[in-house]
């Protein structure tokens, strides 16, 4: 809820500002680190790895425990998804897909925390440290930060090149880039089309996830601006809907990664 003395616009912009290492206001910053995104996403990743590592250490071929069951379900689900479309060694692609799915899911799940919870604690922490709580900024949903989603999608982008070169060789990839899909006589069009297609993949991958979660977060912030008695119904509805969205977006990101890599890995 908007605090006294804050206009709704101020409240929203305060919530949408990163805990940053500098004060660069450019749309694409070359110098500032988004410390909140880095910190929270790394912490979530460590939670994921710790949990799964415990399950891996305790894994037995006998009767599995509850944690092992849970982890096995996820791993079989991811492994089946990869097996369905990726024809090649899954030793790297399947763990990659698992990491993406669980990590992105955890990022997205941060959206279900009350929007004011962490910022309030953060401000209180700043006040306790003798700093100005009004300038304590933090954003807890890493996937609502383009930096995080682009980091993933650019990694996938480079992996697409890696698998393309590995399966077709540099010459083969260049030939395909120039002659598909219209044949060698329409080389310029092929080139334009392929450049657009290649660039569209990481862009759409990153922006789809970012857009969904940014919008979700924004709506939660707007709901938080309502008077308290009017928040319950929209807040509950949006949160329930978001349970679907956060899972779906993680799944889409993983599936598209697998599809792109399997396309890169296949000969035409």
């Amino acid at each position: 809820m908007a605090e006294a003395g804050h206009s709704p616009a101020e409240y929203v912009t305060h919530h949408l500002r990163h805990w940053s290492s500098g004060h660069d206001s450019a749309f694409i910053s070359l110098t500032d680190w988004h410390l909140d995104t880095l910190l929270i996403s790394t912490l979530l990743g460590l939670v994921f790895l710790t949990l799964f590592r415990i399950a891996a250490v305790r894994a037995t071929a006998g009767v599995p425990g509850k944690l092992q069951n849970f982890v096995e379900v996820l791993i079989e689900f991811v492994d089946n998804s990869v097996r369905d479309s990726f024809h090649g060694s899954r030793a790297f692609v399947a763990p990659l897909a698992l990491t993406i799915f669980v990590w992105v899911f955890l990022w997205n799940a941060m959206d279900l925390l009350p929007v004011d919870l962490v910022p309030k604690l953060w401000a209180a922490g700043h006040a306790a440290a003798g700093e100005d709580p009004a300038h304590a900024y933090i954003r807890v949903v890493p996937s609502a930060d383009m930096s995080a989603t682009f980091a993933l999608s650019l990694s996938v982008f480079f992996l697409i090149f890696f698998y393309s070169f590995k399966s077709k060789g540099f010459g083969g990839y260049a030939k395909e880039f120039l002659t598909h899909p219209f044949g060698p006589w329409l080389m310029p069009f092929n080139l334009i089309l392929n450049i657009v297609e290649t660039l569209a993949r990481p862009l759409s991958l990153a922006l789809r996830l970012f857009g969904n979660l940014y919008a979700g977060e924004l709506i939660f912030i707007l709901i938080a601006l309502l008077p308290w008695w009017a928040q319950v119904v929209p807040g509950l509805g949006w949160a329930i809907f978001h349970i679907l969205v956060i899972t779906l977006q993680a799944f889409i990101f993983m599936t598209l990664t697998i599809v792109y890599l399997s396309m890169a890995n296949e000969h035409h």
């Binding site: 500032d32 880095l38 980091a151 650019l154």
Partner: peptide, 29 residues
């Protein structure tokens, strides 16, 4: 805002996580 240092840092973290999953999580299970 998109932050280039964040993107690079995040990619490194991502790479480490994938490596860890590939080496220590996926094979035993």
């Amino acid at each position: 805002q998109a932050s280039i240092p964040s993107i690079v840092g995040q990619m490194i973290v991502f790479g480490l996580f994938v490596w860890f999953t590939m080496k220590f999580v996926w094979p035993p299970i």
